[in-house]
């Protein structure tokens, strides 16, 4: 089992009020799965993705990634796990726009022990794999939206992760480019990488093998396994 989440709950304080972003979320994801986490805006899907991506912690519950109890790790160990096991693709691409493509893709390698001479080789390989090898010398802000998302995917891939978490990865793209990006995710999934996509878009969710639907912080549907609302 790649991901084991049990009873994940996250509450935000807004002034004196409490807002439950995630309410007792329990599910598992196997290695090599292609999963969509679907929900409307404010349903709690990004919160769930942040917790699954080790960017944030839950107030209660437990989360194991690749058998590691994530909530027991310290800042440094969590960062290492994020670096080695996880790749992120976000709606706004999260690239350093004034830097060149190669620096952006290389960034995760700066935070582990990859030798410098190997870094460039790995960057060239992943850029070729996502089809933008020729853009290596350009700055991120010189690329189109689709190209930028490919750069983000290349960055997610550069450390050979077990899972890629994508938060509305096609949200800023036109439909043609969206399809290309989804095809790329499918190709990567076929190579054995688990893909977890957060989306509000039915068409995107339909491209995935499994759907987890979330409403008001609760999981209401998990690939046919329907929970009570």
């Amino acid at each position: 089992m790649l991901i084991e989440a049990e009873g994940l709950t996250k509450t935000y304080k807004i002034g004196r009020d409490k807002f439950v972003a995630l309410d007792n979320a329990t599910f598992n994801i196997d290695e090599g799965e292609f999963v969509a986490i679907q929900g409307t805006s404010g349903a709690g899907k990004s919160t769930l993705l942040h917790i699954l991506g080790c960017l944030d912690t839950a107030d209660s519950g437990s989360y194991h990634l690749g058998g590691v109890d994530v909530f027991k790790l310290n800042d440094r160990e969590t960062a290492r796990l994020r670096n080695e096991k996880i790749g992120f693709v976000l709606q706004d691409f999260s690239l350093i726009n004034h830097k060149k493509v190669d620096f952006n893709v290389m960034l995760p390698l700066y935070f582990n022990k990859t030798p410098r001479r190997e870094m460039r080789e790995r960057v060239e390989n992943v850029l070729d794999a996502v089809g933008i090898g020729s853009q290596v010398g350009k700055r991120a802000n010189q690329l189109s939206g689709g190209q930028r998302q490919r750069v983000a995917i290349a960055r997610a891939l550069v450390n050979d992760p077990s899972v890629i978490f994508a938060d509305e990865p096609t949200g800023a793209l036109d439909s043609k480019t969206s399809k290309e990006v989804m095809k790329l995710f499918r190709r990567l999934n076929e190579k054995g990488i688990a893909i977890v996509i957060v989306t509000h878009d039915n068409a995107i969710a339909d491209c995935c093998d499994r759907k987890i639907v979330i409403e008001d912080g609760k999981i209401v549907l998990d690939s046919g396994r329907k929970t009570e609302k």
Binding site: R76, P108, F111, R155
Partner: peptide, 12 residues
Amino acid sequence: SIYYLCGCSRFK
């Protein structure tokens, strides 16, 4: 925040 996403700890 992008560094953090890529595996940079807060301490680093």
